Computed example of a mutant assay.
Amino acid sequence: MTEQTGSLYEHAGGDEGLHRVEDIFYTKVLADPVLKELFPRRRPHHVEHLTWFTAESLGGPDRFTRELGFRHLIDAHRDLEITEEQRARFAELYEEALDEAGLPDDGPFREAFRSHIEFGTRVAQQNSRARTEEELHPLREVPRWRWPARE
């Protein structure tokens, strides 16, 4: 197997590719009956903020950390009480958006992206149910994803 070079961010098409994904994804969640409680209306900068977060987590610029900070993400999810059905649907729509946005569909890239989505939805779900700071997930910075390890 050939070794992957460059970041996942670059492989995804940088900000342009990720913005396409986030725009498609956000449109989907706003219309989805399972997620309408979590996304009752379009927010002006949501796609931009999602793009910043995903870009940073895939090895791109650290705009999310510099402009908003990780606490913004924690606070955005507090008290949402995300159900397992909602978490799973969020992940499903995200994968659909990757396809619709034309992002690469090679195995290593998609494996890394699925791992990113799965981890992120679990952290958000835990934080959405936390009543105290101690119940929050311990993550306090944007996680960084890399290419999957190959033997």
Score class of each variant (00 low, 15 high):
D62A: 13
E22T: 14
A88H: 14
Q125M: 15
V21F: 05
A97N: 10
E111A: 14
R89V: 08
P148S: 11
S115D: 14
T54M: 08
T27R: 08
R114E: 14
H49K: 12
E85N: 06
E100S: 09
E10T: 13
T132C: 07
A112H: 06
R41L: 03
L139E: 15
G14M: 10
T121D: 00
L136G: 06
F25V: 08
A130I: 11
P138Q: 13
L80Y: 03
W52C: 02
W147Q: 11
S115E: 14
L93Q: 01
F53N: 02
E133G: 07
Q4T: 10
R122G: 15
K28N: 08
E118G: 02
F70L: 08
E134C: 04
E134I: 07
A112N: 05
F90E: 03
W145Q: 13
L93W: 04
M1I: 08
H77A: 09
E151V: 15
Q125G: 13
T27V: 06
L73M: 11
E100H: 01
P40E: 12
L80G: 03
P61I: 03
Q126D: 11
T5W: 12
A91P: 12
E56V: 07
Y9M: 03
E111T: 14
G17H: 04
G6R: 07
H137W: 10
V29T: 02
R144K: 15
D79V: 01
R42E: 08
D75P: 03
H137S: 15
E22P: 03
N127K: 12
D99I: 13
F113R: 11
T65D: 03
Q125H: 14
D79Y: 01
R66G: 01
G17Q: 00
R71P: 02
R41T: 06
R150V: 13
D75G: 08
R146H: 14
G120W: 04
E92K: 09
E22Y: 05
L73S: 09
E100T: 07
E81T: 13
D23H: 00
L35A: 04
E133C: 00
F25Y: 09
R146C: 05
A88Q: 15
G6M: 08
I74N: 04
E151A: 15
L8R: 03
G13S: 05
T121G: 11
E118F: 01
E92Y: 11
I74K: 03
G102P: 14
H137M: 12
T132A: 01
V29N: 02
H49G: 06
E118K: 05
P61E: 10
E3C: 00
R114S: 15
P40H: 13
H49P: 00
A97D: 10
G69Y: 03
I82L: 02
V47H: 02
L139R: 15
L136D: 06
R20L: 08
E67G: 00
V47M: 00
E84P: 02
G14Q: 05
D99F: 10
V142A: 08
R89D: 10
